[in-house]
Nucleic acid binder design. Structure first.
Lengths: 358, 358
DNA sequence: CTTCAAATTGTTATCGATATCATCTTGTCG
DNA sequence: CGACAAGATGATATCGATAACAATTTGAAG
């Protein structure tokens, strides 16, 4: 019944993939493979005329450079590895974009992985990445398994840790103190007269930045003599918008007189605010809420959310830039800490003068 | 002044990166390199005892497999390339996650790139990706430059186009009709009694899924005899939340009696709703709004947003699964179209019975 | 005690580019 | 005009693993 005669035009013919090599391009042009190789790099010495002829042949034949072969002999993979906790989080995808942009036109390509906030997953990924012999690696945070650290050091490539200030950096750092940033937010709000502070975050273990924010909160509230903060832990980090909503409900059940609630991220803050609105409470009139991260949503939603703006994109961009520096200067730069900025963005959700809308 | 005697403990010593090779591991254990190579693959025939000894040596020496060398000789790169328009968009990052998950434990790694909704950027990226000799490639959408198509066909690897149903597929497709999905939404809302439809989208050219949604809207509104839709184009796609807000303002200025506004995505719908709220209009009492994509925000915000739920994660997962199939069956599978589901999710933002809150 | 198949390990060639050094032009300058 | 530097190109070895085939060992069956 099968009609073998049907036109198999578009079908993938195995033979189609004529493995074209540089040597064949070279033969076609009448030069050596080495010259073709040179023609692909701008620095190399090939006469303009030859390069032009070669490029025409490349076009005509449809040759595509094979970097896996190239990187073996040149001992340069052309990869930069980057690990982020999650890519569905726009803070981190902004960071990834910053890295991609910084690597533009450098001949380096980003090899991206998601750790899912897990140090074990990170360890696995680090090994998987190192097998590709990246020329540098960018990590999120400073908590790694012992084996991960060992592999990184042994790899002998520059490492940049981001988004935090690790106590014991492996190499370079591009980030900020999450604890101090949260502290600043607490002080700012306390300066506006708030006294009864609540906090919503995930159950602590996995998300180190989250726990740093939490401890910054706790420490500062106590320093200000405002007693122990009212802490709610809800769900495995990263906590969702929905969990933010659930969390604020339990927080207010337990401590109904809370004046302002700080959240580990804008996403949970947003969920919290929406849940309050839905329950007929007005933010900030009845309860003030603040987030962390300055996600797009926070400047758009109603009421707009007070938050800490973090230079996510800049973290990625600078991390990649530091790496490039180190690669160029021959890795002698040593370790540095590059601090990235953050700032409190006061918006409607903590406005002391009450009702968000008219 | 420089103290050369300082302990350079953590500093990157160039010599640290003792290029360990398989041969050295082999010598250490007293076997051949080939046996070490075998020990790394589960299928290969190595006695358990030998494998154990080798793995202990690998651990002791800190050897990490070099896949760039491996892929050259095995002619299998272990890469799957994937191009998405943007990674800051959670719909696409869900798709990326679906692909990553599907590739788990297959020994294949995702090589991810962002096209920024540009066919030229896509062409560049396709070339960059092909230089790594991926074993398959996943694209978003069906619009590619002529050269991109040529390169893809020539590469002789399976190609999966996603998120749309291209008229002339290169190879396999995993997606749905954006136009029909939008059409379904229009019909559903018309069925609820809405008559005066508005539409908010980006200026069309770049985002092909966006323009398909737009044309689905326009066609259906006319088919239903509701006259030409009221269309506002605002900003270069992907349009932001903020642009959604600006767009609905101009739409309502021009056609104040509009009953329901459909938006190219939930993000613009959200921005539109928030802007309305801010201006004292109630959604859906004064104006109904619907989105597209069922982003997390839409089920959390207030009012909750009516939208089209798309199986973003499933698109990624199935695209990768199709690719794996094709790779296993030796590429003979030929072309197929895998339809992914979508459904209308009716929520408060288009509720005919009025006021969102009590 | 053979014999032969299966299991285990080794040897050699090779993947496709690039580093390195060698060769050959060309042109400038004393 | 000779010498030498700069520019362009080529020949060969090599990067570090794996494919393919060969060799050896082991064990079960006859």
């Amino acid at each position: 019944m099968k009609n073998e005669e049907e036109p198999k035009d578009k079908r993938l013919k195995p033979g189609d993939a004529q493995k074209l090599t540089m040597a064949e391009v070279a033969k076609y042009v009448g030069v050596s493979a080495m010259t073709v190789s040179r023609a692909f790099r701008q620095d190399a010495s090939v006469s303009e005329e030859t390069r032009k002829r070669i490029m025409e042949a490349v076009d005509a034949l449809g040759y595509v450079l094979d970097l896996s072969a190239g990187s073996l002999s040149s001992r340069r993979s052309g990869f930069i590895a980057a690990l982020v906790p999650s890519i569905n989080n726009s803070n981190f995808s902004d960071t990834a974009r910053g890295m991609t942009d910084a690597l533009q036109n450098t001949g380096l390509q980003l090899l991206l992985g998601y750790t899912d906030y897990s140090a074990e997953k990170e360890e696995e990924l680090i090994e998987a990445m190192l097998r590709r012999r990246p020329e540098g690696i960018i990590l999120t945070g400073g908590s790694h398994t012992a084996r991960a650290r060992r592999m990184l050091v042994k790899a002998g490539i520059p490492v940049v840790e981001t988004w935090e200030l690790p106590e014991d950096p492996i190499n370079q750092v591009v980030g900020f103190s999450n604890s101090e940033a949260m502290s600043l937010l607490v002080r700012t709000l306390a300066g506006q007269g708030y006294r009864k502070f609540g906090y919503i975050g995930g159950t602590t273990a996995r998300d180190t930045r989250g726990s740093q924010r939490r401890s910054g909160f706790q420490k500062t509230v106590e320093e200000l003599g405002l007693g122990p903060g009212r802490m709610i832990s809800f769900g495995v980090p990263p906590i969702t918008m929905e969990q933010g909503g659930q969390a604020i409900v339990s927080l207010l059940e337990r401590w109904p007189d809370t004046e302002v609630v700080l959240c580990v991220s804008d996403l949970s803050a947003f969920g919290a605010i929406m849940e309050c609105t839905r329950r007929g409470m007005q933010v900030p009139r009845d309860i003030a809420v603040a987030g962390f991260g300055d996600y797009e949503i926070s400047s758009i939603c109603h009421p707009r959310i007070t938050t800490i703006n973090v230079d996510c994109y800049g973290i990625g961009r600078q991390a990649a830039a530091r790496l490039l520096d180190t690669l160029h200067t021959g890795e002698a730069t040593g370790d540095e800490i590059t601090l990235t900025g953050y700032k409190v963005v006061l918006r409607e959700s903590t406005d002391r003068n009450g009702a968000p809308t008219a």
